[in-house]
Design a protein around this nucleic acid. Structure first.
Lengths: 261, 261
DNA sequence: ACCTGAACACCGTTCAAGT
DNA sequence: ACCTGAACACCGTTCAAGT
């Protein structure tokens, strides 16, 4: 039932009835995708500081005016890249719900997916982080921010499904006063915080000196142990879960990275 | 012994031998502080998007050229604001080491301090977050980033002192394979992630709907429970610890906020 | 109706001239 | 030696003209 609402909400966003769109609108949608890829490539080659609307226009076959037809400011473009990031992450999260394993293993598979995506698309991931930053929110279109918020809400309902799984199986028992929303938020905060710090490890000696082992999994395990989510990390080998999730759920993404799962 | 090194490192940064500085250098230092405050006020009044070097110059009694004498780019100015944030947070963290309570209570007091500071100085806190963003790191002065890194290292050694406290008291026992660095990092990631998301709660329905209770403390307790740090949150009232830390350690800061501890 | 790119305005950054 | 602010260059944004 809960999964049904996820299905509906995702479908409303992903399976837009193309027949209801005019040819122009379809072309518009394709062009936007094209522009986003160009923007991402500019950042990849030259860095965020070098991302200019001129460069995006020059690298595309369109004029600056047309770019502004899609994005009402540079920050709006970055928010659009964040939307691209989230829309590609959500299906990976959803896939993890069907991962073959305990409720906690499924949850860990989701975090593995988040990490795989951040490696596959570091720039889009960075945009998703930066999109929570005032410089961006102050200048992007309200409709854009609303769409970002909608996707975030879907992410939360998917997150909630993992928690419900745990509760239903009896492997997760919430203390009184703790809601499933709280647990989703805690997972989100830990995932976000860890990935944000790891992303900037190059600038930070104290982070980079622990990158030799799986720090993301370790942090998630600290949290899930704290929730008492059975089996605890002392009772089960979640390194193996992590590796298995990479192989069974995300091998396509990893192949693009040239990494074996 | 460990505390001694913290003392030394902080002293090297905070208690600069003023007699070794020429009058000019002292004036330079004061002016930099003045400029930082002006920049913060511009952001406070008009938002990050409206922060320009012109406005900072106009609001000060100096010319644009002099501003560039201090900060070699706008991003460098933001990094300097991040340094201001960290240098004011570190003494608050250090104060928490002397908090009257168990090793875990001390650690929670530190997180309370982090939260108080983020309320007292939301813009400086935001700068500390944004300073980990490529747009800033790509353009700020290497020496500035190095200073930021030094402060971060001190923060990590202070964090380490909390963990050592726990280990020495026997209230915290690390599982094999877990280092004290890892635990510091986990606390950092959770604190950073939670505060980052809470900061943007206005834009996010799923975060803002849980702001009615102490979500920061809850997340930290999940983590510390996961580390097995005694007494667990089920055995002890850390809400009271949080409140007490506010009163006993941070009442000055809270007074500035006009909040009673 | 939409696309274009010249034009504009703003702002980051520099530097010759001044003290 | 340092400060100044005019000058410059770049880039975000707009809009009259074109199709």
């Amino acid at each position: 039932m809960l999964e049904q609402t996820i299905e509906n909400r995702m479908s409303a966003i992903y399976n837009v009835d193309t027949s209801s769109l005019s040819r122009k609108q379809l072309a518009m949608r394709d062009r936007e995708k094209e522009l986003l890829e160009i923007a991402r490539d500019v950042v990849m080659r030259e860095g965020f500081a070098q991302l200019t609307m001129d460069k995006v226009a020059a690298a595309s076959s369109y004029s600056k005016g047309t770019i502004y037809n899609h994005f009402n400011s540079k920050e709006d473009l970055i928010a659009a890249l964040a939307i691209e990031a989230l829309s590609r992450e959500l299906p990976m999260f959803k896939r993890s719900l069907a991962f073959d394993g305990s409720s906690r293993e499924k949850c860990i598979a989701m975090h593995a997916g988040y990490f795989v995506f951040s490696q596959l698309e570091p720039i889009l991931s960075m945009c998703a982080m930066v999109s929570r930053t005032p410089a961006v929110t102050e200048k992007s279109a309200p409709e854009r921010l609303q769409k970002l918020n909608e996707l975030e809400e879907i992410a939360v309902s998917i997150g909630d499904a993992f928690i419900q799984n745990g509760i239903n199986s009896g492997e997760l028992v919430l203390n009184p006063g703790v809601t499933s929303d709280n647990v989703v938020f805690a997972n989100w905060a830990m995932g976000f915080g860890t990935n944000a710090l790891v992303h900037n490890a190059e600038h930070s000696t104290c982070v980079s000196r622990q990158l030799n082992h799986n720090i993301v999994l370790q942090n998630i395990n600290f949290l899930l142990d704290g929730l008492g989510w059975k089996p605890l990390s002392t009772e089960f080998d979640y390194e193996q879960t992590w590796a298995r999730a990479r192989k069974e759920l995300f091998s396509e993404e990893l192949a693009l990275l040239g990494q074996e799962a």
